[in-house]
C-alpha cells in the first residue's frame, strides 16, 4: 500500500524531497502495514490485556505485580502508538515531537509525585481545631 499513500500524507505528488519546501527531508508516508498486521497487533494487545488481568488475580505474583503491570502497559502504549498511530512508519519528526513531549511530561510529573511521596501525610489536626474554634467564635460574635 505504500507508494500511493505518500501523497495522502502530505508528501505531494512528486514524492519526498522534491517539494517546494526547503528541508528535503520528507520521509512521510513510508507505507503502512496492512490489515493483516493490524489484526495481529490487536490480538497481541488483547492477549497482553488478558495477561494483565490474570496476574492481578495470582497471589503468588504479587511482589512482581507492579513492575510487570508497568512494563506491560508501556508495551501496549508503544505498540498502539507505533502501529495504529503509524508513528513507527511516519515522518521521524512526528516521532521526535511526541517523544520529546512525553519526556517533558514524564519528568515533570515524576518529579512532582516523587516530592509528594517522600513526605508522609499528616492530618493538620491542630490547625483544623483552631479553625473550628475561630469559626465558632465568629458565629457567636455574629449572634
Amino acid at each position: 500500500m505504500g507508494g500511493h499513500n505518500a501523497a495522502l500524507h502530505g508528501a505531494g505528488p512528486t514524492g519526498p524531497g522534491t517539494k517546494p519546501g526547503t528541508d528535503h527531508l520528507v520521509t512521510d508516508g513510508h507505507g503502512h502495514p496492512g490489515e493483516g498486521v493490524y489484526i495481529r497487533i490487536a490480538i497481541i494487545l488483547a492477549i497482553v490485556t488478558a495477561i494483565e488481568v490474570a496476574i492481578y488475580y495470582v497471589d503468588a505474583l504479587r511482589p512482581l505485580l507492579v513492575p510487570t503491570l508497568l512494563v506491560l502497559s508501556i508495551a501496549k502504549f508503544v505498540v498502539v502508538v507505533g502501529y495504529f498511530m503509524h508513528l513507527k512508519f511516519d515522518d521521524s519528526r512526528y516521532r521526535l515531537m511526541f517523544i520529546a513531549g512525553l519526556v517533558v511530561v514524564f519528568s515533570v510529573i515524576g518529579a512532582l509525585i516523587a516530592m509528594f511521596w517522600t513526605d508522609q501525610y499528616y492530618v493538620p489536626q491542630e490547625a483544623l481545631e483552631t479553625l473550628q474554634q475561630a469559626r465558632e467564635a465568629e458565629a457567636e460574635a455574629a449572634e
Binding site: H4, A7, L8, H9, G10, A11, G12, P13, P16, G17, K19, P20, G21, T22, D23, L25, V26, D28, D91, R93, Y94, M97, F98, A100, G101, L102
Partner: peptide
Amino acid sequence: SEHPPTSTGMDHRKLLMWAFLT
C-alpha cells in the same frame, strides 16, 4: 490526492493534531 505543499512535507492538519496530542 494532492495536498498543498508545505515546507516540511508534513501536512498542516496532521502536524496540528500531533502538536495537540503532545
